[in-house]
Design a protein around this nucleic acid. Sequence first.
DNA 1: CGCCTACTTGACTTACTTCAAAAACAGTGG
DNA 2: CCACTGTTTTTGAAGTAAGTCAAGTAGGCG
Lengths: 243, 243
Amino acid sequence: MKNAHQILIRSLKEHSVLAEEDLSGICSLTHTVREFQPNEDFIRQGDHPELSALVVSGMVARYHLLDDGSRQYLSFHIAGDLPDAQGLFIDEMDHALCAIGRAEVAFFPHREMLRLFKRRPAIGFSIWRETLVDAAIFREAITNNSARTKPGRMAHFFCELFYRARVAGLNDGAKCILPISLTQLGETLGMAIASVNRSLQELRASGTMDFRDGELVVTKWRELKQLAGFNPQYLHMKKQSLI
Amino acid sequence: MKNAHQILIRSLKEHSVLAEEDLSGICSLTHTVREFQPNEDFIRQGDHPELSALVVSGMVARYHLLDDGSRQYLSFHIAGDLPDAQGLFIDEMDHALCAIGRAEVAFFPHREMLRLFKRRPAIGFSIWRETLVDAAIFREAITNNSARTKPGRMAHFFCELFYRARVAGLNDGAKCILPISLTQLGETLGMAIASVNRSLQELRASGTMDFRDGELVVTKWRELKQLAGFNPQYLHMKKQSLI
DNA sequence: CGCCTACTTGACTTACTTCAAAAACAGTGG
DNA sequence: CCACTGTTTTTGAAGTAAGTCAAGTAGGCG
């Protein structure tokens, strides 16, 4: 397992500039690491967390639980992401977090982080920035689920995760681990399971990508992007020209 | 016109605790106020703003412009909101802002704000918090546009705006100014104009509310909330029990 | 091997979109 | 004041995408 501090630093450096003292400040944070099984919740709606989570390995997701018991997935997070940085300033969780596949998550105490932000504002600013990119991803999800055709929105979803994993250095060439079921895909994109399947087959037939057994393979990135209307600008990465 | 500093302070106090020195720090910020006509853009996709906007009066909205020229509205903002606080840390705008109805907007220089955050971290934290509530609103919009029936999502949209306006002290009893067209409502909720109209008529027929001529009247709040599945917890206001 | 879960497929039904046109309304100029 | 224009809202009818329901297949695991 890679060191949690290093994972966080790598991820923050993706978009922010940090001084030597900021890095050592981050490394001074205490933390614990826990492993979670597929679908295991680690923060629930209504919780008042005092720790902030960092994805160390695997994938986690945020979701809303509706009155009728149905689920709406809101976002997916990979190694380096801080999926609940909002807990730093918002007392009560309005959504839950669970592992997608097996995942390792590091937890940092809010108290220590806030103290660090006061001492080294640049660290706070870089994590603030991270939460703002998060918000940009949510905005894109609104547009995706509201304004695109079903196959289009599925393509866009795959594009985003593929791109983010690529930036994080997690892809194996054209392959990307994505341990998500079709049912979950439906609960993410707002479509019925039968539709998910048919849209997926349409994407397969397009020859641009394949997704099966929790693995995404992108064979024609440019065409897939086109088909999805994907423009990575909203992810606000420094290396725009990556792929 | 009310003083922009006072409007900002009132709004931040809605969820954060600020010391006397923080308040005077906020009041030391220079700003300009501009008035915009209905549908007038004041920040465009791709811009690199150096000022942060505060809604002083009226309503503004954020939206994505898609490749095919269609629009997806992302959020609506009323007096006291900072609709582009993200510009503080994210260089390039991934969405645009426009006035809905006539609106007055105050602009504060990023440079001054960042300097203030370093001197008085609590101010930065309160605005950070504001951006996190923003993100919570986006998350709810994902769920709304993906998991609810068309009339349900329209009801939820009205509930949220009514509630937020009420908290901000902008409602006139059961009435609330909402200068938005049915077309825009469709571009917000991801539904065709014809559907918007029919869903609206369904809501009218339910006897819980009416919306016409840019004015929302809520006659049965409890029933409307019920019908919408609206739970204001995600807005993270201090006064939960308000309505 | 049998059970469970995840995926796939088909048939049916209904919601919603699209298209088209009418009605209501606001603004403009004679 | 009223005709003219453009915009927004409303209504109707037709077509279609996608949801629901139901059954069948495939893969993983004790």
